[in-house]
Structures are given as structure tokens and as C-alpha cells.
Nucleic acid binder design. Structure first.
Lengths: 214, 214
DNA sequence: TGTACATCAGTGAACGCGCGTTCACTGATGTAC
DNA sequence: TGTACATCAGTGAACGCGCGTTCACTGATGTAC
């Protein structure tokens, strides 16, 4: 029955980029950011010799950018999740924020990278993070425009609203991750309220403009 | 006439903590964050032997926290500046945001630290950054309350408004720093608009509550 | 079926480097008598 | 005024360490004939 060595886990094939990425992810945490990971450390965690690392990535920077790709996937999951919840019920803001926060907890390591590390690291890394955030903003902007045709009053500058909401939610989410679960729920409520302020404000400003002209 | 060696700069006394801090600041930039500075590097820049570093700081972490102190001073300067401009004219939001952005450019290195590095680094470091941001929020909240008694409608949850504005302005400011000066002016306009959305939204929500009850 | 060869993920050993930290020291300055 | 001593910022040399990177290699797998 036991036709393999007991210690090493049965491999489904040779080590892949993904295995190395998984090892890197495993090392991340509240105290360890991507930029503090060393090539040797990641290799050790992945169970390969340090020089084998080069078979998969040119250097640690390339690995960092690949991690952003993974994080981007996680982010798209957030969006999908939020859309599902919104289309089901009437409320918009709270279910979306809650979807975000839940994904944040489930996927902790991945979204962390987008949340906290976009401002440090190599140029390539920062640009990759910015690209993901922008794609999120674009999705949100389109959703806002759609909503304003269906059930909401016309919003003032949807692109700007999307940007404000995105940046605010991400920063607040980043600080929430350092808190115990109970405080996180408070932060969720705060975020919901903040987003409502932005949306309400945008609508009020649009209405104010509407009176004058157009 | 020449009564000293020509090479070494005349010292006004022994090397102080401040000189070491200045050396650390000099090394910071868009590519170098506090957490990537090494003890030997800072010592080299300060013109002392590596082991002399310990005469001034227990370790690099203590230096990092001391840097936050400096950045806090810079932040208080922002607040003072903004108050002066606001009390002079009628407008509130734009002059304040502009004061912030100007200070950001003048003081680039110092405010950078608060903007970009609050999410990485040691616990002591992160807490020091959070403390400074909180003090900023408190000041802003008090200003909002004062304004709402004098010239503005009553605002909804001033503490939350202050927090939303602070976090948003800081994140946006951080991304602006990577941009050329011209783009920064665009970002300034965006921030002004975002802050107006928040303030207007808070007022609208307060008015809505007022209708129902109290 | 057998043989010769190419490919290529992974390896062990070694390199030079910058790091944080330690040690016993120097030499200027201040203080006590 | 002179002498002895304490203090303490700064020093040069050395340590062991983990790092990124290189080299020539191994050995499994696939392919051509």
C-alpha cells in the first residue's frame, strides 16, 4: 500500500511557479512584507535549493509582481461576490462593504499585499499594484453609472466617486487587519457610513448643479 | 587665516541624535523606505563608525520611531498653516487641501514617512504612525465641530467625517508624490472634490435625520 | 526493442559582500582635592 | 596651579551570519533513428 517515501508529500509533478508563489505567500504575515522576503527564505520554504529559484523567476522582483497577479484574482472575486449580493436585495453599500471585508479575512495574505504594500518596493511592483487598483475603480465606476440609471439619483462625477470609495475602503481595510475581529466589525460599520457620505454627497452636488443649468 | 583642516566641516559640537536623524532622512527617497535603511548605511552618512550608532539609539527601530516624531512636527505645521488660510477667507476645503499638498512638497521626506510607511515595519513603528494620524483626526474633528457652530450646517458624526477625510487625503497624497508636478495639481483638485463630497454628504445625512426626529 | 543524444529542473559547493553586534581601546572634557 | 581620577562619545578590528549569485554537475524524461 505504501509505495512512496513517507516524509515527502506526493508531488503531482515537478515544482512549478505556483509552488514557489505559495511558499512566498505562506511566509507573509502582519510582520513580514513582500519586500522583506529573501530569495533563500522562499526557496527554503518551497523545498528547493536557492539556485533552483532561478528556474522559475528572474529575481525576487518578478516573484513580487506575480504575487500581485494572484492578489488581483482575489480582488475580482470580491467584485463578483459584491455584485451577487447587491442584485439580490435592495441595499447596495453595506452588502458590498461586507463582501469586501469577508474576502479580506478569508484571503488574508493575498489582499494584504494590495492593501499595505502598494507604497513601498520597486517601481515594477508599485505599478502592478496601481494597475489592479485602477481596474477595481473602473469596475466600480461602471457599477455606479448603471445604478444611477436604475434606482439612484444621478451621481456627480462617477469616476471620482469610484476612486474616493476605492482608496478609502482599501486604507480602512488595511488598518482593520491589525485589529481583533470585534474591532473589525466596528471598522466595517465605519466604512459603510463613510461610503454613504461620499455617495450622498455626490448626489447632493449633482442635484445642486442640476438646479443651475443643464 | 586657515586654522583648521580644510576637509572636515567645522562641527558646532559633538554629533547629536539629530545629526544621525538628518543622515537617515537624507537617505530616504522614492526608492528607499525607512525599513530598508541599514545601521551601517546611516552611520556612514552621518560620518561616524557603525558602533558609534549605539551611543545615540538602541537600534534602528528606535531611530525609525524618532523619525515619526519629526514627521509629526511637520504635520502640526500643516495644520497650523491650514488654519491660518481658512480663518482669513471664506473658503475652507480648498485652502486646507492646498496647504497640505504644499507642505507635502516642501517637506517631502518627512511627510512621506507618515504617508507611505504606516503599514509596513515593526509594531512600534506602526503604532507611532497611527498615533500621529489620530492626533490629526482629532484636530480636524474639533475644527469641524467649530465650523458647524459658526457657518456650516450641522454635520453628521464629525469624528467619522474627520477620519474619512484624513485617511483619504493621506492615501491620495501618497500616490501624488510619485507623479510629476503637473499631475499633482490634478490630484489636488480631485482631493478637494472628494472632501467636498464627504462634507456635503455628512450634512445631507444630518439633515435627513433631523427630519425624522431630534 | 535498443541505442545515442538533447533537454532541462534541480543540485552542492563555493564566492564575496554588507550586515548587526561585541570587544577593549583612546583621548578629550569636567571635577575633586 | 597642579595632580589624580571619572566620564563618555567615538574608534578599529574582528566575529559569525544570511544573503544573492556563479559554477560545473546529475539524473530523469523525451526523441530520433
Amino acid at each position: 500500500m505504501e509505495d512512496a517515501d513517507p516524509k515527502p508529500i506526493a508531488r503531482k509533478g515537478p515544482i512549478e511557479r505556483e509552488d514557489v508563489l505559495a511558499a512566498a505567500l505562506k511566509l507573509l504575515g502582519p510582520q513580514r512584507s513582500v519586500s522583506t522576503l529573501s530569495l533563500r527564505e522562499v526557496s527554503r520554504e518551497a523545498g528547493i535549493a536557492p539556485n533552483s529559484f532561478y528556474r522559475h523567476f528572474r529575481d525576487m522582483d518578478e516573484l513580487a509582481v506575480a504575487l500581485i497577479g494572484l492578489a488581483g484574482g482575489s480582488l475580482r472575486k470580491v467584485i463578483r461576490e459584491a455584485r451577487l449580493r447587491v442584485s439580490a436585495g435592495g441595499e447596495v453599500v453595506r452588502p458590498s462593504v461586507e463582501a469586501f471585508m469577508e474576502q479580506l479575512e478569508a484571503d488574508e495574505k493575498l489582499l494584504h499585499i494590495l492593501l499595505r504594500e502598494g507604497t513601498v518596493g520597486s517601481d515594477a511592483f508599485k505599478q502592478a499594484v496601481e494597475r489592479e487598483l485602477h481596474s477595481f475603480e473602473d469596475e466600480l465606476r461602471d457599477d455606479l453609472i448603471r445604478l444611477s440609471q436604475v434606482q439612484w439619483p444621478r451621481a456627480h462625477q462617477p469616476a471620482l466617486v469610484a476612486k474616493a470609495i476605492t482608496r478609502l475602503v482599501f486604507t480602512m481595510g488595511a488598518t482593520a487587519m491589525d485589529q481583533p475581529p470585534q474591532r473589525r466589525r466596528e471598522v466595517t460599520d465605519q466604512i459603510v457610513e463613510m461610503v454613504r457620505m461620499i455617495v450622498t454627497g455626490a448626489q447632493a452636488l449633482a442635484a445642486g448643479e442640476g438646479k443651475d443649468g443643464d
